[in-house]
Nucleic acid binder design. Structure first.
Length: 520
DNA sequence: ATAGGGGTAGAC
DNA sequence: GTCTACCCCTAT
């Protein structure tokens, strides 16, 4: 920055705000609430530094923002108890929402603190289950307890041996519902399992009856049929071995004792078949030909898809070609467990609309967004052109850089989704307002660059606002007032009101924009 | 018959 | 643990 620009900035900052004369109590241009009262000749910086005078101390001092000791907050007017928070015009709704990287903060959890769990774990622990005598139910935990999952349980849980009762329940369940219906068995009230999962059941069955389990994978290769086949072919399931406890394989005798005299029912679930490229292409062709008439697609001889069910085709279409599926007006497959947003993508430079204001992208309609995301995951050949990103929105302003009027209290702020008219940040790009501030020619404010703040100020601002969106924001008044190099402890302007106020030749001039103009 | 909104189980 | 083909259920 040149010396001349330094001087200009200083001059401007020390000028009275023409739209905010100090002698007249101002009202917020948006909501009509009283604005911060300025005392005669009392600099804001002085007000800041004398916080006690304005904060008589009935309430504990607000927590300062961390990081920059030079960064001071403007004093807040007292907030009447029970004051309803004002509705913010749609243009500004959501400006006070947390920055997108707020997710880096630890989330609020209802779980017990880890320390608590550790303390619990440090108590004299019950004897390890593995060391307990192998009596039935020795390691059983009351169902309610296992469901509640105490913090102690969250600590690396010990292995729980299968009791004989559990194993019996499993085998009976498999006999009744078939191999593979693990959840059905698990949920059946006639059987009791000690906090097992369906996966646990499968694993246990694989150990107890390996041949039967294997038979589900290779139907022709084995499967003793529970009781018909020879005992323990290839495995040591002799009575001696069983009695000695060296095996958990279940013998025919044991199964009979459990009342299992029939072969285990095979899982009715069809075998999985990965979709081939040919199948995918056929499905797409069929969809384009018949639309969502899946049955018609299935029976079309040319498509050779009869081995799939109509639902299979629907499912495949909605996962393999989500865009095409959505274009037909069909809802994409909902995500069961929505992933947290990929924060890395928020500053993705590969967006189709390169602009300084694309630090965050407008969220596409859920269906479309999902479609695009799904398409990202699909390997194989590329699908038709992606649904382009809808648009971009300017980055969010941290709420402390915008004047909100009096009745706000930090503690009263709940956050709302942003609805921000992109024009709010486009105005400096207007050709009629071109000035030496306009550095990027991009038509949008480019934060500190556009402002051309002196280096010390820029450093201070960027430091104190490190919580804000990357490269996004105007500095907060609080940040600016904290910079002593300017000797401007008297009158300060909101930076947003100064931008664009210079003539191209550098003279102060033009007119100062107010919020009302800014937002009109 | 199909849509929608998932759940499940097995492969990896 | 993740992915996904297959499955299920209800509504239309």
């Amino acid at each position: 920055m040149t010396d001349r620009q330094h001087v200009l900035v200083r001059h401007l900052i020390s000028r009275p705000n023409p739209i905010e004369p100090q002698s007249v109590p101002q009202r917020h241009p948006l909501n009509g609430t009283p604005q911060l009262a300025k005392g005669h000749n009392s600099g804001l910086a002085r007000i800041h530094l004398d916080t006690d005078a304005h904060n008589p101390g009935d309430r504990p001092a607000k927590r300062r923002r961390t990081g920059d000791a030079k960064s001071l907050d403007l004093p807040k007017l007292p907030v009447r108890q029970g004051t309803k928070r004002l509705r913010i015009p749609p243009t500004l709704t959501g400006l006070h929402q947390p920055p997108p990287n707020a997710g880096l903060l630890p989330s609020i959890s209802t779980e017990q603190p880890v320390a608590l769990a550790e303390r619990a774990a440090s108590k004299p622990a019950p004897v390890a289950v593995d060391a307990t005598p192998p009596t039935a139910g020795r390691d059983s935990v009351p169902e309610s307890a296992s469901a509640a999952r105490t913090p102690t349980h969250l600590a690396k849980s010990k292995r729980k041996r299968w009791s004989d009762e559990e194993t019996a329940c499993l085998l009976k369940g498999v006999s009744r519902f078939g191999i593979g219906s693990w959840t059905k068995i698990l949920k059946c009230s006639e059987y009791g399992f000690d906090g097992r999962t369906a996966l646990d059941l499968k694993d246990r069955f694989r150990i107890c009856c390996p041949d039967d389990y294997r038979s589900t994978k290779h139907p022709r290769s084995g499967g003793r049929g529970a009781v018909e086949a020879e005992d323990g072919a290839g495995t040591d399931t002799s009575d001696a071995a069983i009695k000695s406890g060296t095996t958990v394989h279940k013998s025919r005798v044991e199964l009979r004792e459990l009342g299992i005299n029939q072969p285990f029912a095979q899982n009715k679930r069809r075998k999985r078949h990965a979709y081939s490229v040919e199948e995918d292409e056929a499905i797409l062709r069929g969809f384009r030909k018949y639309g969502n008439a899946w049955a018609a697609i299935r029976v079309d001889d040319d498509l050779r898809l009869e081995h799939r069910t109509a639902t299979d085709l629907r499912d495949r279409m909605r996962t393999r070609y989500p865009e095409e599926y959505a274009k037909a007006g069909l809802a994409p497959r909902p995500e069961v467990f929505p992933k947290p947003p990929d924060r890395g993508r928020d500053i993705d430079n590969s967006t189709t609309e390169p602009s300084p204001t694309t630090a965050s992208r407008k969220r596409a309609p859920r269906s479309i967004a999902l479609a695009a995301e799904k398409a990202d995951d699909v390997p194989q050949k590329p699908t038709s052109a992606r649904v382009p990103h809808q648009a971009t929105v300017p980055p969010l302003l941290p709420y402390d850089s915008v004047f909100w009027g009096a009745p706000f209290d930090e503690e009263d702020l709940d956050y709302e989704p942003i609805t921000l008219d992109r024009g709010i940040l486009d105005w400096p790009g207007d050709a009629s307002k071109q000035s030496f501030f306009d550095h990027s020619r991009s038509g949008a404010i480019e934060s500190l660059v556009s402002l051309r703040l002196p280096e010390p100020m820029a450093a201070s601002v960027s430091h104190s606002m490190s919580h804000a969106l990357t490269g996004s924001v105007l500095p907060s008044v609080a940040s600016i007032t904290a910079v002593p190099q300017f000797g401007m402890d008297d009158q300060l302007e909101l930076p947003s009101l100064m931008i664009g106020a210079l003539e191209p030749d550098g003279r102060a001039g033009g007119h100062f924009l107010g919020f009302d103009e800014l937002l009109s």
